[in-house]
Design a protein around this nucleic acid. Structure first.
Lengths: 233, 233
DNA sequence: AGGAAATTATGCTTTTGAGCATGCAAATTT
DNA sequence: AAATTTGCATGCTCAAAAGCATAATTTCCT
């Protein structure tokens, strides 16, 4: 799927959680204005300070949403997979973007002008409720994340990130390897620590036989131990 | 105002940002089911793990939303003032509460059964858009907060909190004293640090003539300095 | 009013994690 | 194939912040 072209029907099917809320007329208007684009690894989709122009949906690939914090230290806020939507919060809050979005690996992204969606939201309750649900869920996650990142110690934060990656992206056929490969630097940025400490802590987990590492591949050996470490902080 | 009874018209005026979106019929239904209650200082409005039953609106007083984190260390997530709404996120995300809400000082709180509001949202676009805006703004703030709390050093975090309190609650007649009195412990919980460090850092700010402290009263003497400290982290 | 409990202040110790330097290996470029 | 860059690993040092103890002060409760 990654390398092939997507047909219009594929797209309709992929974006169904939004598509299904629309009327005939609204579907026509969305279909007229949507566009599909491929992004290379690390290619930027939008950046901090920009005015929002589109809502995006990951069709294939993976996307990271991050912020450049104090002293250029960047912090990954969210990681997305198919078929998740992003880039619309700032528009609804009437703000510029406070984050940057980039393709984490080669990805196909669908974009729809946000004003089109904004107009439909004002008429279509199903769509409005769709966004309320998304935002409410994201806000809960963001709040949880705040506490996790601020209160847990390094081992707890890394354990938490590994579990998150497993939940979010799943495992490969072997039933153990996390189905996303991050550099130590990205893992650090996701877990709020320096690259050095991500490397060190990952090595420690490996020598404690909690995980096994092979380059960027991470196998979870003892998930219970990870959960325990994540829980106690 | 704090100590008097509120008339129905007072209430309608106070909750106008929500009220104004409603039809006659919906107003009737809300008016039928809303209730007003006074909460004492530190009295709990709802707690973590509970199922959401109501949406709340602060009519008078102040409310804190906090989470009990690792090792009983609590973290203040948000502080509310009249006329802000809270307690609805979990319902829209179809979750239990992940936070606790408590009156920070004697407060009058309006509550409306959340199912009533949920039903109206499904029919009334203005109300749906109202919640989309609220949630989108809160999510942006939560994301900003995550980066601030994780990346700034102690002085930066405390400076940031003091500026937030000033923006949010304003100043007293003297044009300098922040119009909310927090214990050092709450200030710590808002700034993600231990009580010891909140006390120490506050004393340092005072001896640097950036602020003046008199018990729980905090006067901002040099706001520029505070901004600088908050910015550089 | 008076005693108990909570809050604030201050000093000292210990732990955590950031910051650097160095070495090595793999990947990319020339 | 050599050279350069990038990423991973490890050790060492140092600063930041947590933890703890003690005392003074204020607030709360009966």
């Amino acid at each position: 799927m990654q390398n092939n072209e997507l047909s219009l029907n594929d797209i309709r099917r992929l974006i169904s959680s939004l598509w299904d809320t629309l009327t005939e007329e609204q579907r026509y208007s969305v279909e007229e204005s949507l566009s599909i684009r491929k992004y290379k690894k690390n290619e930027i989709i939008y950046t901090e300070e920009e005015m929002p122009t589109c809502i995006y949906c990951v069709l294939t690939g993976k996307v990271k949403i991050y912020r450049d914090g104090v002293g250029g230290r960047s912090q990954i806020m969210r990681m997305l997979k198919p078929v998740e939507y992003f880039g619309y919060r700032a528009y609804f809050a009437n703000e510029r973007y406070v984050t940057t979005a980039a393709a984490f690996e080669p990805s196909t992204i669908c974009s729809i002008p946000i004003t089109i969606i904004g107009d439909i939201v004002k008429q279509n309750n199903h769509l409005a409720v769709f966004f309320i649900r998304q935002l409410a869920a994201d806000l809960g996650q963001s709040d949880e994340r705040t506490v996790n990142l601020t209160q847990k110690h390094i081992r707890g934060r890394l354990a938490e990130s590994l579990l998150f990656l497993k939940e979010n992206y799943g495992l490969e056929e072997d039933g153990a390897t996390i189905d996303i490969y991050l550099s130590r630097e990205d893992l650090a940025s996701l877990s709020n620590m320096t690259t050095s400490n991500a490397i060190r802590t990952l090595s420690n987990f490996a020598s404690e036989r909690i995980i096994a590492i092979d380059g960027r591949k991470i196998k979870i050996i003892n998930e219970d131990a990870l959960r325990k470490i994540s829980k106690i902080g």
